[in-house]
């Protein structure tokens, strides 16, 4: 991994058209400003895992019939919603 030290107010450029600026540095947080072309998606890394989990969940069949059997077996009765 390339490691570059930067101070608040300094920036660096990635490829053609992406500029990363260090806006401020706190004790445990750094504010980063990013300028990039519209088509470049920028997300916090931990969000990628959540996005993947959501996609997986909506892409799989909920199999309620089989789940109902399992819940009966385990004596679990989900709440009625509201």
């Amino acid at each position: 991994m390339l490691v570059i030290s930067r101070k608040a107010g300094e920036s660096l450029v990635i490829g053609d058209g992406i500029t990363v600026s260090i806006l401020s540095v706190g004790s445990d947080k750094v504010a980063v400003g990013i300028e990039a072309p519209r088509e470049v998606q920028i997300v916090r890394a931990e969000l990628l895992d959540v996005i993947e989990a959501n996609r997986e969940a909506t892409n799989t069949d909920a199999k309620p019939e089989s789940l109902a059997q399992l819940f009966k077996q385990k004596n679990i009765r989900p709440a009625q919603g509201e």
Partner: peptide, 30 residues
Amino acid sequence: VRTYDDIPFLYLQSVTNTVPCFLVFEPVDL
């Protein structure tokens, strides 16, 4: 809610598209 075999299941469904749709549970159950 959709009920199967007397067991109620909760779905959270987009109103504008058929996906996303999630089977969801209240934490107290599981």
